[in-house]
Write a protein that binds this DNA or RNA. Sequence first.
DNA 1: CATGAATGAGTGTTCATTCAT
DNA 2: GATGAATGAACACTCATTCAT
Lengths: 199, 199, 199, 199
Amino acid sequence: MRKKQKKKNIIILSALGLFSKQGFYNTTIADISKKIGISVGSMYNYFPSKKDLAKSSIQYVTKKLAVELSYINRKEISEKEKIADFVKVYFIFIQKHPEMIDYFFRVYLSNRELFCDEEDCGFYLAKDFIDEIEILINNGIKHKEFKKRNFYVTFSLISGILGAMTFLNGEKVLEKNLNIYIEEITDMIYKALSVPIQN
Amino acid sequence: MRKKQKKKNIIILSALGLFSKQGFYNTTIADISKKIGISVGSMYNYFPSKKDLAKSSIQYVTKKLAVELSYINRKEISEKEKIADFVKVYFIFIQKHPEMIDYFFRVYLSNRELFCDEEDCGFYLAKDFIDEIEILINNGIKHKEFKKRNFYVTFSLISGILGAMTFLNGEKVLEKNLNIYIEEITDMIYKALSVPIQN
Amino acid sequence: MRKKQKKKNIIILSALGLFSKQGFYNTTIADISKKIGISVGSMYNYFPSKKDLAKSSIQYVTKKLAVELSYINRKEISEKEKIADFVKVYFIFIQKHPEMIDYFFRVYLSNRELFCDEEDCGFYLAKDFIDEIEILINNGIKHKEFKKRNFYVTFSLISGILGAMTFLNGEKVLEKNLNIYIEEITDMIYKALSVPIQN
Amino acid sequence: MRKKQKKKNIIILSALGLFSKQGFYNTTIADISKKIGISVGSMYNYFPSKKDLAKSSIQYVTKKLAVELSYINRKEISEKEKIADFVKVYFIFIQKHPEMIDYFFRVYLSNRELFCDEEDCGFYLAKDFIDEIEILINNGIKHKEFKKRNFYVTFSLISGILGAMTFLNGEKVLEKNLNIYIEEITDMIYKALSVPIQN
DNA sequence: CATGAATGAGTGTTCATTCAT
DNA sequence: GATGAATGAACACTCATTCAT
């Protein structure tokens, strides 16, 4: 059974690469299977449909990203350092797995119809990732370093700036070495979140 | 000739509504034309292709949004007030024309293949909108209210948080009345941008 | 009424040029009318349908060609000279009106469905041209210069070689100046038609 | 792999029949596939496009015809007998496979746009057939039975008369039994080609 | 007579999914 | 489990023809 999971991951990685580059609708099952040298029919032994493959792919990505972030939340460092680490880890991730982040932003966030079942809009698929951000924020508030605010607003600030930078990076307008942006971003996020006195 | 432009706008609005709701690839030309009671063939008297219609649609949206924002930049108010106005106008726009904002985020930002011509990636299509944000930032810097930072980072902070809120709004997790978020968002953006002394 | 016929001819010439170059099915009514600066709707005041325009066009061509050939049949020269003249006139015609000959061979002879009405296959459209060849042959037989043979066979020999040369000319494999082929073709046709003693 | 070629041939035969009867542009892919009981999509597993099917079809025809003619060129008989055999074999072919010959004349020779790639005009598709005629002519010249003439002219004489007879046959103006024309045609071709003394 | 926008049936092609081998 | 041929619904786009102006 371990073997089956391995093959599933191989397929997911192939799908991620193609979906993120060409988009979901411009990628065919044949493309995905040819890339890893298996037959079209075989693919269906692992995933019942193309849509399902897309769902599994997003879970794969968010879990991977969440794991990286979870280490930070468990560290015994200041909230500011956590944010800095957060940004850094995220940027390393972008550079190491651009196709995963691209997939997240370009396929998952933009193709509702693929991930929504009736009323529930597959938000749970990114839960692992969202949870880690929530922990970060709540810890900061608990330690009185962060001002208590509406969660969605704070969440949007953090994920928004990272998302926008990701997008600009995809558009090739940023410097190749993303690390040069880390300090400023950290600074902005921290200023936005922290309680007045902090300054 | 005025008449032709009017009809084009009718088609664009129909397309915007459907593209933003169902996605570009799940919307057929027949859907768009049926919605406004014209024939499929007629559509092609106004736009040479579906792709072209998508391009014209994004220009329509960004121009519309840019016009609203341009008023603010010309006002004689403090930078903080400008940001507050910016957020407010943006939220009003979301509530009034949700399909336009959705189109911007879900179709334009996520379907590169539709807007890219070879190397040039149709970034110019959103230029009007980006320009207004740039003016806001530069004015703040000139008036020593904002810290001088890398443009892309600042741009990402502002557009990122607005984009993320838009996304959450689309997911129906926010309060219906978005106005309750304005103050907090303005505060965060302002804190992130302003020079230390400001606090 | 003279004026109407003139306009009809203008349209026919436009159609001939496009049909012969691009084929009937790859030429649109819009192409034909744009080429001469009239509107699509106007075209339909002169010809009730595209098919009808094709029929009128072929009649225009065969009549034009037949007129040229008829002069030869009325001359008081030997049959051999008539054949030489025939070939010469035909080649001059090809060079002067390549689109007409092309139309004849590429559209008329090859698109039965356009010119056939139920059982009758629009053969009459080329009648003028065929008639002149028949006169040439019959005269030769009457004067005992040509052997009496089945008409269709003789007709095929003459029109066949001219047609094949036309085709090769269209394929650009022949010398630009077609006149260099006249003597040999005349010689071959004459030898094939004439009575044994002639040699 | 043998099996795939067999299926391709079945499709080609279906296409040949329909293209030759209705023309290329009046035959749909659905027509072709329905005729042999396969699905539209299946067709595309064998030929990437309708155009491509047309090209493969003409190659199929010319190869088939060339094979028949090649036997004659290898026989040890006089040139006159070869011509007679040539005409006979051709006429048998017409009667046995009228759709193939019709396809050759009505689709291949008349729809340049289908077979031309940029400058090269798919002449090679009929190469096998043309080659056999060239061999016949050159042999005759080598054996001093045929007068040395420009190749294109001689080629036009032979293929022209056969083509014209084919056309008339398609128009149903000839006797059903084409064999009655063989002798006269052979005689005419031979007289046209042979050196004067020969008579 | 002239115009050109509107029509809508028609076509080549794609592709997720199935299933016999 | 693996294969890849078969399926057929779906869709972008075309274009001859009409007709209100």
